[in-house]
Design a protein around this nucleic acid. Structure first.
Lengths: 108, 108
DNA sequence: TTTAATTATGTCAAATATGACATATTACGA
DNA sequence: TCGTAATATGTCATATTTGACATAATTAAA
């Protein structure tokens, strides 16, 4: 089952609802985490594609390298707001973000 | 120009970067705000479609009525995280959210 | 209008995210 | 190997968001 997955998520700091503690994540919890992971994944691949370091990206959005690292690691304690702002700064359009969530974006 | 729009945004609490103070929003700022408005708009229409009151929705997501009202008003001080969680609780799928951002979702 | 239900607005203490910073770890040439 | 750039991990004070609550404004039905 998802014991391994859950352990991984909890290490990243996610708080899993008690009802899901033994029965697995609710579909909503799953979808929410999927969205986060897909966004962070796109951040990493787009940054690499542009050849930027984490420090360069951090400066571009007025943040710090450590925060970029946490974003790309899918860590909790990072808001979707920060991820979306970062993606936009990387040149990813609203439409591309939409495609990503639909499952229609090849991230290269 | 966007003086009216800016005033409206500032009333909602948005902090507009100083460089954009007179020259207008950057494309990234614009896109970010658009995303927020589209999500809040979908929250309102979906809730109404289901015939839920703000209080009912608030209870469903473990929040409060005032927070729902602020979300639907496109107020700042509401994270995308909360909006996304709310949409998922309303039965909106990740794919539908993607379509929304792409501009391919008829909100009825 | 009068009433009741719903929604909007404002405030608060507690919880969480923030950038900055230090430092550990890894990756990769020379 | 060694040295260095890049990335990961952890901590901190500050800022922002949180749900809860009070209450005003709006809406709708009688």
């Amino acid at each position: 089952m998802d014991k391994e997955k859950r352990k991984e998520l909890e290490e990243k700091g996610f708080q899993i609802g008690s009802a899901a503690e033994f029965l697995g994540l609710t579909p909503e919890e799953e979808a929410f985490i999927e969205i986060r992971l897909e966004l962070s994944s796109l951040i990493k691949s787009r940054r690499n594609k542009l050849g930027w370091t984490q420090q360069q990206l951090a400066t571009a959005i007025g943040s710090s390298q450590s925060r970029i690292a946490k974003m790309e690691a899918g860590d909790s304690g990072i808001t979707l707001d920060l991820m979306i702002k970062t993606l936009l700064k990387l040149g990813v359009s609203k439409q591309e973000i939409g495609k990503l969530l639909e499952g229609n974006l090849e991230m290269v």
